[in-house]
Amino acid sequence: MANKINVKVLRQPDPHSGSHWETFGVPYEDGMNVTTILQRIAANPVTADHQPTTPVAYDASCLEEVCGACTMVINGTVRQACSALVDQLMEDSPNVIEVRPMTKFAVVRDLVVDRRPMFEALKRVKAWVRVDGYHDLGPGRRVLASEQEAAYPLSRCMTCGCCVEACPQFHDKSPFIGPAAISQAMFFNAHPTGRVDESDRLEVLSGFGGIADCGNSQNCVKVCPKDIPLTDSIAQAGRDTTIHKIKQWFGR
């Protein structure tokens, strides 16, 4: 094992400047991941050709792939930096680790991107259960284990952005709402109380930038780090919006 890892990072100082590559030689450590690499660069921001530079800006929080913060494109694949282990990356690409920001969001700086559009999409599909209030009104409805098992995988969405990064239909010139929001809409439509807003959600998904914009490339489900059955949600949304439209034609 080479004792220095060759790391190429696509850098951009701010939203208005162009981007450029910088290469770093980072000493190898057992069990290290891409986050550790970025931490080591922060502690010693010097490029491989000994030029002082600024630390690479990046998002990171939980470091165990449950918060979704550190999503970036590593060796061409969108994923979380914390669970991108150097040993595994080197098996496929022994000479270099290439890190760049996601391409579907505006870059703030270096690897930090603005994912607010994803959270805005959650507002559009009313991704919540509209309860009467927060006083004690007893337990929720009883739920069968099979229903819980269907709901739980959808509920693990971290809003990390992998699915929209991989989606050919999601980009700055398209209004497509993206797989994550569609799946959340299906999650809440399946909930015994969340269902009260079902028709509003289906209205959004039937409209501009809704389900019809999905090109069925199925890239989303391949990159989802939580194995969320996104294409099942999309298929469900397709059926449900069709029924929703038919009901509307008949004036219901």
Binding site: W128, V129, V131, Y134, D136, L137, G138, P139, G140, R142, V143, L144, A145, E147, Q148, A151, Y152, S155, F188, H191, T193, G194
Partner: peptide, 22 residues
């Protein structure tokens, strides 16, 4: 107990027994 009931109403997918209790 009231805190858990509230979370249940808010849609937290708590694991269930075969009969559907938490």
């Amino acid at each position: 107990p009231r805190v858990i009931d509230l979370l249940d109403r808010l849609g937290v997918p708590f694991n269930r027994t075969p009969e559907g209790f938490r």
